[in-house]
Computed example of a mutant assay.
Amino acid sequence: MPIAADDFDRLPEKALDLTEGSNAQIVLTFLSEHPDAAFRQNEIIEGTEVKAGSIGPVLSRLEERGLVRHKGKYWTIGEDDRLASYAAMAQTFATADERFPDEDMGEWLQHAENPYDEHSEDE
């Protein structure tokens, strides 16, 4: 879905793609579903089916933003408060998909409030 040029100008230089199905979203969801565990990269690959050549850069970008952390060869979900919200949101979407399998989440999101829309706060 396109965004307005003004919104484009406000995006950070290194925007992280967390849209549904992106590698970053898949890895973050996997780690948020296992908050009490730490994984090696090959275990994350097996658990997510993200390609081996992509996993390192994805984990590095997530770590730059504090969304994941690692020690040695192990990676786990970060400790940021935003992640609790992300994990809850991921669980909500999973529950919604289970309860309403015939609904198209994309159609729902088309009608969701756009945080970049200047008029959304006025309504």
Rank of each mutant, 00 (worst) to 15 (best):
G47K: 11
T19D: 00
E43N: 06
Y74D: 04
G47I: 09
R40D: 04
D7N: 03
E46N: 12
A112W: 13
S60Y: 08
A15K: 12
D36F: 13
L28D: 07
D122W: 12
T92N: 02
T29C: 11
E20S: 01
F8S: 09
A87E: 03
G66V: 06
L67V: 08
D81L: 11
A88L: 10
E79S: 10
I44Y: 06
E46T: 14
G21S: 04
Y74K: 10
P101T: 06
A84N: 01
R65D: 09
D117Y: 13
S32W: 14
W75F: 10
L62W: 09
D122C: 03
E33A: 07
I3A: 07
E118H: 09
M89Q: 04
A37Q: 15
G72Q: 03
L109K: 14
N23K: 09
L31Y: 04
Q25R: 15
T92M: 03
T29E: 13
W108I: 15
A38D: 03
R10A: 03
A87M: 01
A96H: 14
I77S: 01
L18M: 11
D122F: 12
P57T: 04
D97Y: 15
D6N: 07
P101D: 02
S32F: 13
W75Q: 06
E43T: 11
L16D: 05
L28C: 07
F100Y: 15
T92H: 02
K51H: 09
Q41K: 15
T92L: 02
E46Y: 00
